[in-house]
């Protein structure tokens, strides 16, 4: 079989195009990025995480700065979340974490609110103040309960 430059060029272009589309799907759409162990880790412990999932976003003032790495129970049965956050943000020890929802029923994410102290959080530190997920079911239950009492 002899070489045929035009065909080989087209095949090469085809392969590049295919690889580019796989790369686009992996990195852009699939959200693959190399954070690795270099990331800045914080621990936040909540009474209730609702349907917060690993890989959920961590935001400050609406800007994404990291993601939830893992959610597990600690010794006293509270939900312990490990957050992976961009290093060098300079979060102080008064920072609080809250679980919020996109829209009324959308995805859960963790919102961090920096405080105003000079002492900074180090990687691996625990965030002191946390606000748990608001559960619609509990709210509804509360309303039903409250109105129910009046009728009795």
């Amino acid at each position: 079989m002899q070489r045929s430059p035009v065909r080989d060029l087209i095949v090469g272009l085809f392969v590049l195009l295919g690889l580019a589309s796989i790369g686009y799907l992996s990195i852009e759409v699939g959200g693959l990025y190399y954070s690795g162990p270099s990331g800045f880790k914080l621990i936040a412990t909540f009474d209730e995480v609702g349907d917060l999932k690993p890989r959920a976003a961590v935001v400050i003032a609406g800007v994404k700065v990291g993601q939830v790495v893992s959610i597990e129970l600690d010794e006293i049965l509270r939900a312990r979340c490990e957050l992976d956050i961009d290093p060098g943000l300079g979060l102080d020890v008064e920072t609080s974490a809250a679980i919020m929802t996109v829209g009324l029923l959308g995805e859960k994410f963790v919102a961090l609110e920096p405080g105003g102290l000079d002492q900074m959080l180090k990687s691996g530190d625990e965030i002191g103040r946390t606000v748990s997920a608001l559960s619609i079911e509990k709210l509804v239950g509360k309303i039903v309960n409250d109105t129910g009492l009046e009728e009795d």
Binding site: F14, G18, S21, L25
Partner: peptide
């Protein structure tokens, strides 16, 4: 070899 490449292109075009 061509199947993953074509699948990638198919997905990008359908998106």
């Amino acid at each position: 070899l061509v199947m993953p490449l074509l699948v990638g292109l198919f997905i990008v075009f359908s998106l």
